[in-house]
Design a binder for these strands. Structure first.
Lengths: 138, 138
DNA sequence: CCAATAAATGCACTTCCATTGCACTTTTTA
DNA sequence: TAAAAAGTGCAATGGAAGTGCATTTATTGG
């Protein structure tokens, strides 16, 4: 708990009770979470607060947003040294069509993409959809 | 015009006036279009009709949907031999952060992705964001 | 050719999620 | 400790996708 507070402070985010709890919640989940998920977990808190907390987290490099193609924005904690902004550091995301969960495959970096002349890449989003290991096997 | 009609018939889609026009419109554009774009081009037609036309086109392999991360669904005509369903045939999409246009880079196939044990890929979505050649300079 | 049927279209409405404005509360700081 | 800043909560808005149903248009079998 104390570690979370200092971590947030390091990231220039004031560690309010709410923020610490949300961070803790996300750290315990291994999968990307939607705003609605957090909403269900913290029924006392207002949706707006959660929304803005995630926004603050994102702006300060604590979480990154994931567009997994479901139309619902998901969020996941950035890894220790995660520099989501840097192209070389981008990992891919996997969305399970069965359990509907989305995970960051942080070990899997996105291969370098060759673009036609004149195109400048700033960001890459790669989402693989299919069946996750939890659902595919016994 | 006549070719479009027979083309649609080949695809088992009845070539109504509306559908031919929409197809023509998309064929002339080189970029992916949003429902709203078509709506602006055909102010007399109802949005629902356009929506369902695109849906029909999609179901019959005439267009494919693109999720370029803007939150707005885009559509683009499938290439001659395009088999959007087949993983090996998937191409990547480029979204320009300057002009906001999205193009299919059909020449650029998505490299094969190695997934961890137990994961089964069914679909891949790869979107590169940046500056397109039109915007990046002469 | 015409009636019966099916497909396509248009209108109104709903839903879902993201986002914002404003008032209120808590924390920080001078 | 008062003033300012940051955080929180409520209500409302907005944008886009999607649906139900009535109406029109096209197809088909007699």
């Amino acid at each position: 708990m104390k570690e979370i507070e200092t971590f947030l402070e390091d990231k220039k985010v004031r560690p309010t009770a709410m923020r610490v709890l949300i961070y803790k919640y996300m750290a315990e989940k291994e999968i990307a979470v939607a705003l609605a998920d957090i909403e269900n977990a913290f029924t006392k808190a207002d949706r707006t607060t959660l929304y803005r907390t995630l926004k603050t987290f994102e702006e300060n490099g604590i979480v990154h947003q994931i567009d997994d193609g479901t139309g619902i924005t998901k969020y996941a904690l950035c890894d220790k040294g995660c520099n989501c902004e840097i192209e070389q550091d981008l990992h891919l995301h996997f969305h399970c069509l069965n359990c509907n969960e989305t995970v960051c495959l942080t070990k899997h970096k996105i291969p370098h993409i060759n673009l036609p002349e004149g195109y400048l890449a700033e960001d890459v989003n790669l989402v693989v959809k299919g069946i996750c290991e939890k659902c595919s096997g016994q």
